[in-house]
Nucleic acid binder design. Structure first.
Lengths: 212, 212
DNA sequence: CCTACCGATCGGTAGG
DNA sequence: CCTACCGATCGGTAGG
């Protein structure tokens, strides 16, 4: 009796051990291959190798899966920016801001589906889970901290931290989405790096000819 | 017999006279109210008051409707930018670039669904109709012309027209999408104008403290 | 975590 | 431009 129960338990439980994680990955794959319309709980379940009712044990509804993907996206975005920061190991605020941009763009080009979920209108404003808000705030704070340091060091002329952060964010995010959506021909990794460096240098030095 | 035919023709034909246009509007309404997943040919047909088979007389498939909406979006975007240009009637390149940004952002906030279709991943790279490409190129050219004039007048320091255009476009587009997706609290029309003016001034003058 | 089922909706076509 | 129909898929629930 006991042995039978153990055997059944083994067969019944999800082999990979973490169905929730498998569903997030499956959802991501659906998104990158078929766009937002291809994302469904049922298809994700099939990709993960479980019945289409199984996901409801981990996600209350489809929206919850989308939110989980978005949260993961924010965390990976933050990680990508921090990796670039760690790589350069420079204290110069200008170099650090460029590193943030490189990290942002690299993440966008490597896993465009994440950005599509976060900023592509899949997330309806319904009810945003608190963990998602936290993850988003953390990503923004990563940028904001560097901007604040740049202002403190005197290298950034404007003093409104959020205004300057928004300028950087808008430019890097704008380039990322334009590239992702094919509005601009896709560059390779190296060209992408040169692209973002050029844009951020323009933003730093200004487009206008100095008035003597 | 003739009168009957006339009567039937009148009853059978689409009342508004332009079903194609009605379907574009219906698709747009679906998008703005329910997001990308709410857009379907059948729902659009219902909104337009026709049977769900009727749209196929005007659009080969769903993709064709999406492309038509996107094309319309590009044209309205171009028109919005040109309206702002006409409004200021100034020759100063800096003022004109800001006007372009104001027009872009105004359009984005007034009809976010268009931008969602154009840049939100609904358009899959499958086969882009030539009219859509033309409309997109026209929007970009509107910006590029002003940048070229600014370079010619000597007010813009960098000489690469496309690089400078991309910088402006990325920043304005980035701010627009961040606002549309609720990443940043929605401002009113006046605050939005101040926002884009502030960002473009930052881009123009540069974020860095001038060396000496 | 599964099978079986619900009502609804979808894109698309046949045939008129 | 319509009715009627096709096969497929969807979100979600019941019940175990």
């Amino acid at each position: 009796m006991v042995t039978i129960q153990v055997a059944r338990k083994k067969r019944d439980s999800y082999q990979h051990g973490d169905l929730r994680e498998a569903l997030v990955q499956a959802g991501l794959k659906l998104l990158s291959e078929g766009g937002v319309t291809a994302l469904s709980l049922r298809a994700a379940a099939q990709l993960a190798g479980v019945s289409h009712a199984a996901p409801y044990r981990h996600f209350r509804d489809k929206e919850a899966l989308v939110a989980a993907i978005a949260e993961r996206g924010f965390r990976l975005l933050t990680a990508s920016m921090r990796e670039e920061l760690a790589r350069i190991r420079a204290a110069d605020p200008r170099a650090r801001l460029i590193a943030l941009g490189v990290g942002y763009l690299r993440f966008a080009l490597e896993s465009p589906a994440y950005l599509q979920v976060i900023f592509g209108g899949v997330m309806r404003g319904d009810h945003v889970p608190p963990e998602l808000g936290v993850a988003g705030a953390e990503a923004y704070q990563t940028l904001r901290d560097e901007v604040a340091a740049g202002i403190a060091s005197g290298q950034l002329r404007r003093k409104d931290v959020d205004q300057v952060s928004l300028a950087c964010w808008s430019m890097v995010h704008g380039l990322s989405t334009l590239l992702i959506n094919g509005a601009i021909p896709h560059p390779g990794p190296a060209a992408a790096r040169a692209m973002i460096e050029g844009l951020l240098r323009s933003l730093g030095e200004g487009l206008y000819t100095p008035t003597k």
